[in-house]
Design a protein around this nucleic acid. Structure first.
Ligand SMILES: [Zn+2]
Ligand SMILES: [Zn+2]
Ligand SMILES: [Zn+2]
Ligand SMILES: [Zn+2]
Lengths: 160, 160
DNA sequence: CAAATAATGCAATATTATAACATATCTTCT
DNA sequence: AGAAGATATGTTATAATATTGCATTATTTG
């Protein structure tokens, strides 16, 4: 899942295709700015902050977009389930399975910052169960697991 | 768990006693500022932001503490497991069971803001399992469940 | 007591996010 | 096509959250 050991262009193409298809199906407009922001988010598998997106877009045009421009695009992408917000980092990551509405379950490597999306139905159902036991009406679950990805844990072990 | 239907003074006393005992046992210093910040965090069962803590402390002394003062106290309390950070709100909440080192599992009511700490071993073990399947070395888990608490869901149902 | 360590005070600044209002673009309907 | 309404973007300013760096004070240790 590092950006180096796989064809990341393919990740980007897939994400954009899916986004286009989903927006079309829902009569939502994937405008140029929204697409550029989505592209920035998908520029790697690391979560990216809003202001890093601004910096990235600045390099592609004469003037950097103002914060509201980017935040509005991010809101659109969040609303349409195309990206997730990584709360523990105040940052954003592309969604692996847009369309299938789901809650975000993320593995975040503290060393290389790569962020992987999990889809654990068991984890999800335990969250539901726990909420139910407290008579809590669950609307949104956020699971963020931080630690070391496989690659990094091996590299650290090797260094010592 | 609303602040109204229970003796919250008792919650505060308990939290402070536990904090004092834990710090003593670990040879950590629960200084006046740290204690005041802990008290502010425990002023209710709602998560509180750092700047609200500053405001609260301002009322108790002539000058409001500077941000670093409060953030350092918060860091100390976090390090010692006396409070949790609520990532989805950029805010802080007192820990119900300090001492028992554990990850934070929170139920956050979007209406009344009350935040309850869960201790679901099943949820925890599913998180561990999911991480293990990806060969991820899990260090920290953050589970934040947002929705409506029992009280609020009843009140909303009643209003309609 | 002196030295070392830990905690706090303080000023400036960095980072993340939103409010308010003007303008432009797209859609829909006639 | 043209007008009306809805949606999206531009722009400026500002709010809210968090950290850096350095001086000072308090506490612990030897
Ligand atoms: Zn990729
Ligand atoms: Zn890694
Ligand atoms: Zn209470
Ligand atoms: Zn509530």
């Amino acid at each position: 899942m590092t950006t180096s050991n796989h064809n990341h262009q393919k990740c980007i193409r897939t994400a954009l295709c899916q986004a286009e298809a989903l927006c079309k199906a829902r009569a939502q407009r994937l405008t140029p700015i929204r697409e550029q922001v989505l592209r920035s988010v998908w520029s790697s598998h690391k979560a990216i902050g809003a202001y890093s997106i601004i910096d990235a877009l600045a390099k592609q045009s004469s003037k950097p977009p103002a914060p509201p421009t980017v935040y509005r695009a991010l809101d659109f992408l969040l609303d349409n389930g195309l990206i997730h917000r990584v709360n523990s980092l105040n940052a954003f990551i592309g969604c692996n399975a847009p369309g299938h509405q789901h809650n975000s379950q993320l593995l975040i490597c503290r060393r290389c910052s790569n962020t992987t999306e999990l889809v654990s139905e068991a984890l999800n159902s335990q969250a539901n169960k726990a909420a139910k036991q407290e008579n809590f009406v669950l609307e949104q679950t956020c699971v963020e697991l931080t630690g070391l990805c496989e690659t990094c844990s091996r590299e650290i072990a090797h260094d010592e």
